[in-house]
Amino acid sequence: MEDKSRISKAIQLIAQLSIDRASQVFSKMVKCGAKISLEKVYLTDITKATEEIAIEGGEVIGAYIDLVGDAPFKFLITFETNDSLLLTDLILQRPTGSTKELDALTQSAVQEVGNILASAISNVFSSDFQIKMKPSPPQVVHDFAATLFEEYISAIAAESNEILIIESQFMVVRHNLKCAMYILPLKGSDKTLSYICNTI
């Protein structure tokens, strides 16, 4: 069994590379200075994780994507409802404030940001570690932040009392866009993570 600290280092490295790549494509997508930075990588109890999100509250639009292949991961990106309107304006290069209503277009803005960022992460696995991974079509949900997060971790939480959270922070120049992005390794990705340990 691989040393846990080495697997943690592998995950940190993967997380950093993935977020760096995601940051580049996100900046290109919103066509202005934007950066995604790796906030933290940590193991936490499922109850504690969901309590904290429940306290923060909020209503969000989220895109769920399964990364399937040699290293199955689950990906979730969420935007506060109002920020999804701003996101739509940035992507379509409209004056901010143009998008006023939450509709299919706004939801697809979140959908496509999720698709592109999840793909960027799978591209890192492919290019840097020769590991085959591809995203599933995104599923977009508009709901309470805690509900989305609960559904997101349910695949792991059934069997494990702890989850690994890879959390990142979005910064967009001149705009205060609040977004959360999570990457969750699933059962079956351990072998691949061990393989990565041995190559770094």
Binding site: S119, K132, P135
Partner: peptide
């Protein structure tokens, strides 16, 4: 038109008959 920038996938698309590919964004 795809966000998947992986050589194998893109070559598969070309071999399957795609004229070209565009990477998102």
């Amino acid at each position: 038109v795809t966000a998947i920038d992986q050589r194998e996938s893109l070559m598969k698309a070309i071999r399957a008959g795609a004229t070209d590919y565009i990477i998102k964004p």
